[in-house]
Each structure stands twice: as structure tokens, then as C-alpha cells.
């Protein structure tokens, strides 16, 4: 797994539950306590061991852990860059949803080694959008739910999200946008502050 993913888990645990919890988790999962390098690629197994240890130590289901990780990635001040990069997807939450299928190729422009899942966005019945997240590794869909839930707040949209489960490599998420401009949302400038 790419170091960015492992580092994301590391920083999520450290920033949310504290350094001591990260140390315990690292020891239990035989991960480097000093942390991962974001630009290296690591063996897949260490990621799996960390997630098992996280379930155990945090006392939460994997789905919840992963969704919280998604939320962390786009809301914690320590990782502000990802929120900004995702907001380039569109001016409104529905536009952002539509741009999801571009996300893997966008990410690959910046980090070619980062193997993100493929996303397909389909208009379902009754205004429900169905997002297909396709990856040989399970769990990305839950992270995406956390990301979308938080970004919806960021855009000021009111949405209902549901992870519909996994079949083979496919994870389905249903999104119903109840109101695209429910609240003010956080401002976004195209050019980053200096």
C-alpha cells in the first residue's frame, strides 16, 4: 500500500486518539512506531494489520473506523490540502459528485504510484446518485462515505449517504442530495493562501 494511505491511518489515530494510542497500535500491528514515509510504498499486509489493531484498540467496527478516517482526511487542520484538492472537483456538491470518476486520474497526475479505486457515478431513481467504488482492496467505500459526508457539509449541502455493501470488487454507495445549498458552507478560493 502506498505510504500516503499508511500515513493517513497513522496521522488519523495520532491526531484523533493521541500519540500513546498510535504507539500501542503500531506495536500491536508491527508497524514502524516512528511512522510511515508518505512517499514510499509498503507491503499491503501492514495496512491490514493496522486496521485490525484499530478495530481492537478503538473498539469499533472497521466500517466506522474507515468512515472516521475519511472524515479526518478532509476536516482535520493537519491535512488541509486534501480538502482543497477535492473542492477543485466542482463549485457545488452535485458537481463534486459528478467529478468523482475523474478523481483517480487526477490523483495519478500528482502521485502516479497511488493506486486509488475506480469510481463510477450513476444517476439512480428518485434523484438518488449511486457511486460504484471498485478496488481489489475492501474498505475504500467506507472511507469515501466519510469524505463525502464531510465534504457535503463543506459545500453546505444536505445529503443522505448509505454504504450498500460489497460484492466482489464492487462497493456501492447511495447518495441522495436533499438540498445542494442547505447551509452557507465553507468558502473555497482557487488560488491557495500564501
Amino acid at each position: 500500500m502506498h505510504g500516503l494511505v499508511n500515513r493517513a491511518i497513522q496521522c488519523f489515530v495520532r491526531d484523533t486518539y493521541g500519540g500513546t494510542m498510535w504507539e500501542r497500535l503500531a506495536r500491536q500491528s508491527d508497524a514502524p512506531v516512528a511512522g510511515f514515509e508518505a512517499m514510499f510504498v509498503y507491503d499491503d499486509e501492514v495496512t491490514e494489520r493496522m486496521l485490525c489493531a484499530a478495530e481492537d484498540l478503538l473498539g469499533r467496527d472497521r466500517a466506522i473506523v474507515l468512515e472516521d478516517l475519511g472524515t479526518y482526511l478532509v476536516s482535520h487542520p493537519n491535512v488541509g490540502s486534501l480538502r482543497r484538492l477535492l473542492r477543485f472537483g466542482g463549485d457545488t456538491f452535485p458537481e463534486f459528485l459528478d467529478s468523482l470518476d475523474d478523481l483517480p486520474s487526477r490523483a495519478a497526475l500528482a502521485v502516479p504510484e497511488l493506486e486509488l479505486p475506480r469510481f463510477d457515478v450513476m444517476q439512480g431513481e428518485g434523484g438518488i446518485v449511486r457511486v460504484l467504488c471498485r478496488s481489489p482492496r475492501a474498505g475504500f467505500g467506507h472511507v469515501l462515505v466519510g469524505i463525502m459526508r464531510t465534504l457535503a457539509d463543506d459545500y453546505g449541502a444536505l445529503v443522505l449517504l448509505e454504504h450498500e455493501g460489497r460484492e466482489g470488487e464492487n462497493e456501492w454507495i447511495s447518495v441522495s442530495v436533499l438540498s445542494a445549498d442547505f447551509a452557507q458552507g465553507r468558502p473555497f478560493q482557487l488560488a491557495a493562501d500564501r
Binding site: M39, L85, A107, L109, A110
Partner: peptide
């Protein structure tokens, strides 16, 4: 906008 995105993504990676 794509260019801005790329600029910012590359800057983030460069920082890493």
C-alpha cells in the same frame, strides 16, 4: 482550473 489543481497537488507532494 485543472492547471491550478495540478499546481497545488504537485506542491503538496513536493512538500512531502
Amino acid at each position: 482550473v485543472e492547471m491550478l489543481y495540478l499546481l497545488e497537488a504537485k506542491e503538496t507532494i513536493l512538500e512531502e
